[in-house]
Simulated scan of single mutants.
Amino acid sequence: MQLRKQQRGMTFVGLVLTAILIVFAGMVVIQAAPTYLEFLTVKKAVDKAATGTTVAEVRNIFDKAATIDTITAISSKDLDIGKVAGRVVVSFAYEKDIHLFGPAYLVMRYSGESK
């Protein structure tokens, strides 16, 4: 009876379940990280494109940046371009689907606007 009170730690089943959860979380992070990095690249390109003065110029600047940085998630046609207080504001929104397993997907929604 006293040996049982002194024992501490995880059971083998608990260890296996914990390992499965850690592996699953790692797989999700590994698949989601590239989409977030692409979002940061899109954000940088949108900030650069906001230096344009006309809609055509803004789209052209974004297309050049998208070609250089290989942005595939969004095109210049998907940008919302407007003026606020005399400055050009470019905003965007898009979704990325990440297949987890079977019929399960993780949907990442990204949106932002120029500074």
Rank of each mutant, 00 (worst) to 15 (best):
D47L: 07
V46D: 00
I20W: 07
V42H: 01
K96V: 09
A73W: 03
D80V: 15
K77F: 00
I22E: 06
A45N: 01
D63K: 14
G52A: 04
L3Q: 14
V90R: 09
T53C: 00
T54R: 08
P103E: 13
I81E: 00
I30L: 15
Q7H: 13
I61P: 02
A33Q: 13
I71V: 04
K83Q: 11
V46H: 02
A49H: 01
S76I: 03
K77W: 01
I98V: 11
V42I: 09
G26D: 05
Y110M: 14
T54I: 07
V16L: 15
D80S: 13
K5A: 14
Y94P: 00
Y36M: 07
T72R: 14
S91W: 08
A56M: 08
V29L: 12
A45G: 01
G82L: 08
V28G: 02
F39W: 11
I20H: 07
A45W: 02
V84F: 03
I22D: 04
A45V: 02
S114G: 02
F62R: 10
G86E: 03
A65T: 06
F39M: 09
R87N: 10
I81C: 01
V55Y: 03
Y36A: 02
L37D: 06
I81A: 00
A104N: 10
T67G: 15
T41V: 09
V55A: 06
I20L: 15
A104V: 15
Y94R: 10
D78H: 04
K5M: 13
N60M: 13
F62V: 04
I22V: 12
T41H: 04
A19W: 08
T18L: 15
R59F: 01
A85R: 12
R4Q: 14
K115T: 09
S76Q: 05
A73F: 02
T18Y: 09
V16G: 05
R87M: 09
Q6M: 15
I30A: 15
R8L: 12
K83I: 07
Q31K: 15
G26E: 08
S114V: 08
K43D: 05
T67Y: 12
E38G: 00
Q31C: 01
R4Y: 11
A104S: 09
L79E: 01
T70D: 12
